[in-house]
Amino acid sequence: MSTEIIIETANTTKIFNKEKPDEVIAVNDVSIKINRGDFVVFKGPSGSGKTTLLSMIGCMTRPTSGSIYVKGKDVSHLPERFMTMIRRNTFGFIFQQFHLIKGVSVCENVMLPLYPTDIKPSKLRKKAEEILHNLGMEGRKDFPVQRLSGGEQQRTTIARALINDPDIILADEPTAHLDTNLSEEFLSIMRGLQQEGKTILIATHDPLVYEKDYINLIIEMRDGRVKNIIGKQ
């Protein structure tokens, strides 16, 4: 596997409510490098800035200062349109609360990220069905999502994150709502994706996650700063 640096942050800082009495430095001067194919875990206590850092990497919000490079390109000062484009082409998101659109079927939820593109709907549906099939969800594809079990919702979220064939998968507290079995299942899916060459970034304080031996980078955070970086090869 190559050692191409896929994500790099350089003195990245995020300050909420800057210069106001309730100013919060959520992420403070973080400089890290992540290689393509890494399985990265961000750990740290609540409020340490994991989610904030992940959303900056995922081009959902811009850093207050410092830069973020995705595939060598500085994305921290791009206009909204281009940030969206990078988000759509490069990242797959898995949210803690799943964030599926209620009342819409599993398959449509999975197709959703690519609706505003010029793809033919028949092609898009085939693609979604294929991913759902790989995740063992083919029997549920026309189910409305609100009737799914937690594990099925999680897999739908994963399928949605994969529809654009992203290089990087971002997951924020993905196991918080899952029992041990489902968490294990989730992690093995992520492991499989890593083996396909995708880069996985997970923010969590679940030991079940960061104790896995295939995790090759653990970034420990506290009060917005990186406290410790443990690299395992």
Binding site: T84, R87, H99, P113
Partner: peptide
């Protein structure tokens, strides 16, 4: 509001 947020997060533009 949340649905709009989700759509944006998964790659929809403001104009979309």
């Amino acid at each position: 509001k949340q649905e709009i947020g989700i759509l944006k997060a998964i790659g929809w533009e403001t104009s979309d």
